[in-house]
C-alpha cells in the first residue's frame, strides 16, 4: 500500500514518523471489514428485486405508517427535548440553585442506563398501573402503547445530548454581550430573549439535530413502551426486525438504507453548523 504522505497543508519533512504501513494497514482492514463491507451490503441489497419493487414495498401503508411514526415522533420529541434541555442548561449555568452539581450529574443518567433497562422502566412507569401512568389514566390520558409513549422514551434518551451541547456554549458566551445590552437599558428578560437566545441558536439546532438523529433509529428504550401495534405504534426499526424474520432481506435493507441516509444527512447538517461555532468543537456529536 502506498500512501501519499507529502500531501499535507503544512510544509513539513514528509514521512519522517515511522509506522505508516502498520497504522494504515490495520486501519484500512478494520474500516473495510467492519464498516465498508456491511455498508456495501446495505446499499446493494434493497435493489435486488428492482427499483419499482423497492418503491412499492417502501410505500405500503404499513411501512409508510412506521416511517411516519418514527420520523414524526423523533421530530416532536427533539423539539420538546430542545426546550427542556434549554431550561436545564439555563438553570445549571444562569440560576445555579443550591444542589446544582447534583442536577448536573443526574442529566447524564440516560447515557449510563442501557437502552433495554430504560425501556422496561419507562414502560412500567407510564403503564396504566404505573406511578405516572395511573394518575394520567385517571385523567383519561394513555401514554404507554401510544405515539406519546414513544415520544416520552425519545425525550429521555435525547435530553443529555441537548444539555451537553448547549451548556458549554452558554458558559462561554462573552459577558460583554449582556453588559452592552444592560447599559443600553435592556431588562433581564429582554437580554435573555433578544441577546442570549439568538447567540445560542446554533447550539440549540445542533442539540435538536443530535436528538433527532438518535431518536429516528432508537429501538431498545422505545419498543417496551410503544405497544407495537401495526399502523399505530410500530416504529420503523421494529419493522426492519419483522421483515428480517420474514426472510425479506431486500425489504428490511430498504427501510434500513432510508433511515441511514436520513440520519447521515441530519448529522452532516449538524457538522456544518458546528463549524460555524468554534466554541463547540469537541462537544457531543
Amino acid at each position: 500500500m502506498r500512501v501519499a504522505l507529502a500531501a499535507g497543508r503544512r510544509p513539513r519533512t514528509p514521512a519522517i514518523i515511522p509506522g505508516a504501513l502498520p497504522a494504515f494497514g490495520l486501519t484500512l482492514f478494520w474500516v473495510g471489514l467492519l464498516v465498508l463491507l456491511p455498508l456495501a451490503a446495505l446499499a446493494e441489497r434493497p435493489w435486488e428485486n428492482g427499483a419499482p419493487w423497492l418503491l412499492a414495498t417502501l410505500t405500503t401503508p404499513r411501512t409508510l405508517a412506521a416511517l411516519r411514526l418514527s420520523f414524526g415522533c423523533a421530530l416532536c420529541a427533539a423539539a420538546v427535548t430542545t426546550l427542556l434541555g434549554l431550561l436545564l442548561a439555563w438553570v445549571l449555568e444562569r440560576v445555579r440553585p443550591p444542589g446544582w452539581r447534583m442536577l448536573d450529574a443526574l442529566i447524564d443518567l440516560p447515557f449510563a442506563l442501557p437502552t433495554a433497562v430504560a425501556g422496561i422502566t419507562l414502560a412500567t412507569l407510564y403503564a396504566p398501573t404505573g406511578w405516572i401512568g395511573a394518575p394520567l389514566a385517571g385523567l383519561g390520558f394513555r401514554i404507554a402503547g401510544t405515539p406519546v409513549g414513544i415520544g416520552v422514551a425519545l425525550v429521555f434518551v435525547g435530553l443529555p445530548f441537548v444539555v451537553r451541547t448547549v451548556l458549554p456554549v452558554l458558559r462561554d458566551l462573552p459577558g460583554e454581550l449582556e453588559e452592552a445590552a444592560a447599559t443600553l437599558g435592556a431588562r433581564r428578560g429582554q437580554i435573555a430573549l433578544r441577546v442570549l437566545l439568538p447567540a445560542l441558536f446554533p447550539a440549540l439546532a445542533t442539540g435538536f439535530g443530535l436528538a433527532f438523529a438518535r431518536g429516528v433509529g432508537e429501538y431498545g428504550s422505545v419498543i417496551f413502551i410503544a405497544g407495537n401495534k401495526p399502523m399505530v405504534s410500530e416504529i420503523a426499526p421494529l419493522l426492519i426486525v419483522i421483515r428480517l424474520s420474514e426472510d425479506d432481506y431486500a425489504g428490511a435493507a430498504g427501510i434500513g438504507l432510508l433511515m441511514l441516509v436520513t440520519a447521515a444527512l441530519c448529522l452532516m447538517l449538524v457538522t456544518l453548523l458546528r463549524r460555524r461555532l468554534p466554541a463547540m468543537r469537541g462537544v457531543a456529536g
Binding site: 446495505l42 429516528v216 426492519i240 428480517l244 428490511a252 434500513g256 433511515m259 440520519a263
Partner: peptide
C-alpha cells in the same frame, strides 16, 4: 449515526 437495528441488520 446508524440505528442499532441497522447495525445488526447489515
Amino acid at each position: 449515526s446508524v440505528s442499532p437495528v441497522v447495525a445488526g441488520l447489515v
